[in-house]
Computed example of a mutant assay.
Amino acid sequence: MYNRLARIGSTSVRSPLCSGWAKLRYGNIQNMAEIPSSGITLLYSGLNSTATSGSRYSTKTRTDNVEYNKMLAEYQKRVEQYEPATLDSLEFNSSSADSNLPPIIAIHGLYGSKLNWRGLMRRINKTLDRTIVAVDLRNHGSSQHMGPHNYFAMTKDILHFIEQKKWDKVVLMGHSMGGKVSMITSLLYPELVSSVIVEDMTPSFSELSQDFINYLTGLEEIHNHPERITNLRQADELFHKYEPNDKTVRQFILTNLRLNDEGVLKLRLGSKYIREGMDDVRGWPLPPPTFVPSTPHQQKDPLYETMPEPSKIINSGSIGSNASDNLQSQLIFEYNKPSLLVCGSRSTHINGAGVAKFKKMFVNSSIVELDTGHW
């Protein structure tokens, strides 16, 4: 997904969610006819907000719905109870000292790091002259290792990072686990987020395969190996049994190893905290919950009874009347500023119920598919 977004190709389109003409750089879009209406240009325009006061969307606010405000305050307390972790970051600054465009914060997924974003960051910075910063989430990369590893704690980390930077507003761009952090931050603190881009993740339960646990076990084996593992060739040989089929995935996971002062590869993940928080990483902590019906320890979600496939929702722009009625009957958080969901057409992390929830919660949103998988 990171590489696909950074690949070169260009055209000019006019998007209703962007002011004027925007330069679009894209990968292999599955349906080229969808480009003008999809809002993919938002990815490279920094999602300049076009939402105005008196929005046509019936979004609940802190002042017009007592029940909604009470729910919002309750969930903000859940975020603010946590001690923030110190986050390391990589930054490309705008050359315009007087630029009033909000900076973009890029947030990686599970087992990722700020370095995943380098190619895309350079392109956005060069093309748009925008400040863009990628962070290492807690227990990843060079950031602080501490528990717990859950979405409320990670949201608190992002809020603390924004506060340290003294930024009034930001654009959030998150992949996978980082996409959930971006969505939660946007929904609970909309005054801080001018727009949001979510890559291959929806506000729903995520079915993580046993592979994700195996990857952590493999990295820990290398970290604790009695022999000195001093290069990635040795590490790849040891890790091969945990991912025998996909060399690209192995290379990605092994980026979590770094040479220490003695020249030995050691793990940069807070593996203890990640392992303890894996159920939280799978989940979605805001109402209403969406569960995968094949998961035995979770209740089957009625949305799945009538939900179209994600591609049908994306192409038609509709989630169907039954699903809409189901969601309409529940009090949910909403975000009414420009939002973009980028789905991988070959990804297993996106399902119809999740896309439906995204459209319902992010009411001023566009959705686009790229011909790629989750990574």
Rank of each mutant, 00 (worst) to 15 (best):
R123T: 10
N125Q: 07
S96Y: 15
L72N: 09
K166L: 09
L101F: 11
R118N: 07
E163C: 02
D98C: 09
G112K: 01
K180W: 08
S95M: 13
N125I: 06
L128M: 12
Q81A: 13
M71Y: 06
T131K: 00
M183R: 02
G179E: 12
N93L: 11
S113C: 03
L72S: 12
K70C: 14
R123V: 07
I105P: 00
V181P: 05
N139K: 07
L115C: 11
D129P: 07
S194E: 13
L137R: 04
S143R: 04
L90A: 07
P103G: 08
G178L: 00
L192I: 04
S182L: 03
I107Q: 04
A106S: 06
N100P: 04
A106Y: 00
K180E: 05
S95G: 14
Y68I: 04
G179V: 12
L90Y: 14
R62C: 12
Q144N: 14
T86R: 11
G174I: 01
F92V: 09
M154R: 10
R62D: 14
S94N: 04
E67W: 10
M71F: 07
Y75K: 09
H149G: 10
L110Y: 08
R78H: 15
D168W: 06
I104K: 03
L120G: 03
M71R: 13
D98L: 15
D129N: 14
S195I: 13
A85N: 02
V181G: 07
H108Q: 08
L115P: 01
S195E: 02
E80V: 02
V193H: 00
L120D: 09
V181C: 11
D136L: 11
A153R: 00
P103W: 04
S186F: 03
K165A: 10
S99N: 09
D64R: 06
F161A: 01
Y189K: 01
K169M: 11
K165T: 03
D136N: 09
V170Q: 09
V133I: 13
E67K: 12
L188S: 01
K70P: 06
G141Y: 03
N139I: 11
L172P: 00
I132Y: 10
V193C: 01
R62M: 13
V193M: 00
G147E: 06
Q144M: 14
Y151L: 09
Q144E: 13
K77S: 15
G112R: 01
A73R: 15
D98R: 14
G147R: 04
L72P: 12
P148E: 07
A134G: 02
K165I: 03
L128N: 11
S89A: 14
L87K: 01
S94D: 03
Y151D: 09
H108R: 04
L187G: 02
T127Y: 08
P84I: 12
G174Q: 06
Q164R: 15
E91T: 15
M146E: 10
T185C: 10
V135G: 02
H145K: 15
G109K: 15
M154K: 09
I105T: 05
H175F: 07
T155W: 00
I124E: 03
S143N: 11
L187Q: 02
N125Y: 03
H160T: 14
I184M: 08
F152S: 09
E74A: 14
V171E: 05
V193S: 00
M71E: 01
S195W: 08
S143D: 10
A85V: 01
